[in-house]
């Protein structure tokens, strides 16, 4: 677990390893992790707020605050605290939205 990480695993560490990608870089999680856990056991933020562009890392973990929505590379939205990590998931922590792109 990186020094960078926010979350600290304290049990259940013999679960299956799940490879995934975040912003193109490979990373690993454990089966049964939420996307938020998968990210925050490596890093300390999952997105930037829209207006002030400040780092955010979720808040409620129960689908109430909506402050952990991120993206998959194919443009889908993921609420990180309430979505399970899946093998080879390709996640983005920055908006891929480019309104100007043709369809």
């Amino acid at each position: 677990m990186d020094e960078q990480s926010l979350f600290l695993r304290v049990a259940e560490q013999d679960r299956e390893i799940v490879p995934f990608f975040v912003n193109g870089r490979p990373a690993t999680a454990l089966s049964g992790d939420t996307v938020l856990t998968a990210l925050l056991t490596h890093d300390h933020e999952v997105r930037l707020s829209e207006i002030l562009e400040q780092p955010r890392a979720g808040f409620c973990l129960m689908g109430a605050c909506q402050d952990c929505w991120i993206w998959t590379e194919d443009g889908k939205r993921v609420r990180a605290c309430s979505t399970m990590i899946e093998p080879d998931m390709r996640l983005r922590t920055r908006s891929p939205f480019n309104g100007a792109r043709p369809e």
Binding site: W69, G75, K76, F97, N98, G99, R101, E103
Partner: peptide, 9 residues
């Protein structure tokens, strides 16, 4: 109308 809006909330 705007296909790039797919995936927006």
């Amino acid at each position: 109308f705007l296909p790039s809006m797919a995936g927006v909330q």
